[in-house]
């Protein structure tokens, strides 16, 4: 059984339905990329998994989320509180908002250790330094005593990762963890996260809009579009044989080495807002292969190819049609 299994999850904020029957699963030692443009529902999925929907006035309207056998959709808040931070950790896009400016970063990692593992002050400090070494933070002892404003963005994001690891979680949800960072630092952080998954047998849900990050880091991919699943499958399969026209278009948005001038076109139009979702397949107004049934019928998921990709499209692209 998977560590995390999301089945037909639907979420509304107020009266507005934002997620519609989203499904994916994630195992230990696995990196799942959750991709899509802004407005696809990626971050909302992260908030749902963290049990933070009430904060934004949202609620689960249908479907199930199971984490290690626990049904998260019905879990009461006190039990959720024990889960958050200890077994499920969140790394957010902006390290600035995750760190307290008036405490040293060391104190903040220590605090996370003491809160979750019940360690003494000395043991927590030793553990923090150990974590910082694992994350290849140079001069860990010196950095342990510094304040967030004294550190670079990449270093702050490493501190946030150390805080996430302090609770010894089974699942890390990383919501665009490198978007605010420079490319060289981004590469380092992604590498660190992937190493952690391999070494510790963590499960990592990597939320990103960047197909390049997905290609480099993930085992499997789940593509979201306008609050619905578009395509889910193994990363090699998805990139070699994208079957959903949206997946293919999204991959095509990133210039490849030696790509001829004028061949990068993007996806025409934009993601619809939740107030104006089109009927049928929500991607059809932007789709180059849309047929009459796409405008009226919501496509159901079908299993395609040997990799077992699930594709939500009436007219999936032929294999070899790359």
């Amino acid at each position: 059984m998977s560590l995390l299994a999301v089945d037909d999850l639907s979420v509304s904020i107020g009266m507005v339905p934002l997620l519609d029957r989203v499904s994916f699963s994630l195992d230990r030692g696995e990196v799942l990329g959750l991709v899509g443009e802004s407005g696809s529902g990626k971050s909302l999925t992260a908030m749902t998994l963290m049990g933070l929907l009430p904060l934004i006035g949202g609620r689960i309207t249908a479907g199930r989320v199971r984490f290690d056998g626990i049904d998260l959709t019905t879990l009461p808040e006190p039990a959720y509180r024990d889960l958050r931070g200890q077994r499920i950790a969140l790394i957010s896009q902006n390290p600035m908002t995750s760190l307290d400016p008036i405490l040293t970063v060391g104190a903040q990692i220590d605090q996370a250790s003491r809160l979750h593992a019940g360690l003494s002050a000395a043991a927590a400090r030793a553990r923090s330094l150990d974590l910082m070494h694992q994350l290849r933070i140079p001069e860990a002892v010196a950095i342990h005593g510094q304040y967030p404003h004294q550190l670079s963005g990449g270093m702050k994001q490493r501190i946030v990762i150390a805080m996430a690891l302090a609770g010894d979680p089974d699942l890390i949800i990383a919501d665009e963890p490198t978007t605010a960072l420079d490319v060289t630092i981004q590469a380092q952080i992604i590498q660190i996260l992937c190493d952690l998954v391999a070494e510790r047998g963590l499960a990592l849900l990597l939320i990103t809009h960047d197909m390049g990050v997905v290609a480099q880091a993930c085992h499997r991919v789940s593509v979201l579009y306008a609050g619905r699943g578009a395509e889910t499958g193994p990363v090699h399969d998805i990139f070699a044989r994208p079957r959903h026209p949206y997946t293919k278009a999204l991959i095509g948005c990133i210039p490849r080495e030696g790509q001829a001038p004028g061949t990068l076109v993007g996806i025409p139009g934009m993601v619809p807002t939740a107030f104006a979702y089109p009927k049928g397949c929500r991607y059809h107004p932007r789709c180059t292969a849309a047929a009459p049934d796409c405008r009226t019928e919501v496509p159901a998921g079908s299993i395609q190819g040997v990799g077992g990709s699930i594709v939500f499209c009436h007219h999936p692209l032929e294999v070899g049609h790359v």
Partner: peptide, 22 residues
């Protein structure tokens, strides 16, 4: 910089050279 750029191609994953120093 070249090595840090993520290509949209999982068949060509790069081992990232570790940058030391600030």
């Amino acid at each position: 910089l070249m090595e840090s750029a993520f290509l949209p191609d999982p068949e060509r994953r790069r081992a990232v050279t570790r940058l030391t120093g600030e």
